[in-house]
């Protein structure tokens, strides 16, 4: 974990409510895809947790949806600095993927899969991606995943683009060695049931600190109590206990 100041270098709108922010700064604490950062915003008490979408030696990319005061404020920032805690959470482990893993994201669960796909492809794996949205206007990053060399399928609930239905509809008949996913909990649970391989599932919880100090984000797992911010947000399929 590291606290440092990042400079905003880009903040663009990807869809009606989704934005991408690029920042430059010290990314040395970020060690894996699927980890997150915690952002201090003017006038708000708690920091806002957002997944790492992509990073390199000195730049960080995040993709966020405007849902409330904090993300609204972020969407209006064109320049300036942000106080960010980096290197939070465990992240995805790429060693377990096998030769052709499938990456499944729903809505704002899509962003952390991008750097994961990049890492898996760099390791020579053949990566399939399923991106789930409600409707065509909400789709983002289909082209970006294709540009990495992934085999991409998009699902929309209303059928306005790609496969009509849920991400699980795209999983039918598919061959894959491992499942990585991130998205709303009902989606994760549906994937859990539909998937015939082991996998890693990324969860969300309201956070007080984001670095393991407050016990605000705990969950029960097969292997005991875990903090989503510290021993999570990524849990292995075999240890998940569903509460919904």
């Amino acid at each position: 974990m590291k606290q440092s100041l990042f400079q905003i270098t880009e903040n663009v709108k990807l869809t009606e409510s989704i934005y991408r922010m690029r920042l430059s700064g010290d990314t040395s604490a970020i060690t894996a895809p699927g980890t997150f950062v915690n952002i201090k915003l003017e006038g708000l008490f708690l920091r806002r947790p957002i997944s790492v979408n992509d990073y390199d030696d000195n730049s960080l990319t995040i993709i966020y949806k405007v849902v409330g005061k904090g993300t609204e404020q972020m969407s209006k920032m064109q320049s300036g600095t942000l106080d960010i805690l980096t290197g939070l959470g465990n992240g995805y482990n790429t060693d377990l993927s096998g030769e052709n893993p499938v990456l499944i994201g729903g809505g704002v669960g899509v962003p952390p899969l991008y750097n994961l796909a990049k890492k898996l492809i760099a390791q020579g794996k053949s990566v399939s991606v399923i991106l789930g949205f409600n409707t065509k206007a909400e789709i983002f990053y289909e082209e970006e995943f294709k540009a990495l060399g992934c085999n991409v399928q998009v699902t929309t609930v209303d059928g306005s683009y790609g496969i009509k239905g849920f991400v699980t509809n795209a999983m039918e008949g598919m061959n894959y060695t491992y499942t990585y996913c991130c998205g709303p909990e009902p989606m994760l649970k549906a994937i859990f049931k539909a998937s015939n391989t082991s996998g890693q599932y990324s969860f969300e919880e309201r956070m007080g600190c984001g670095f393991g100090a407050c016990m605000g984000c705990s969950c029960k797992t097969v292997t005991g109590y875990k903090r989503i911010c510290k021993e999570g947000p990524v849990l292995e399929k075999e240890e998940i206990l569903w509460e919904i």
């Binding site: 008490f45 708690l46 309201r206 956070m207 007080g208 407050c214 605000g216 984000c217």
Partner: peptide, 15 residues
């Protein structure tokens, strides 16, 4: 959970 809520200049916890 949720055990945490944001407030003006503070927070609520129910850990």
């Amino acid at each position: 959970t949720p055990r945490i809520a944001e407030c003006s200049s503070g927070m609520i916890n129910a850990v």
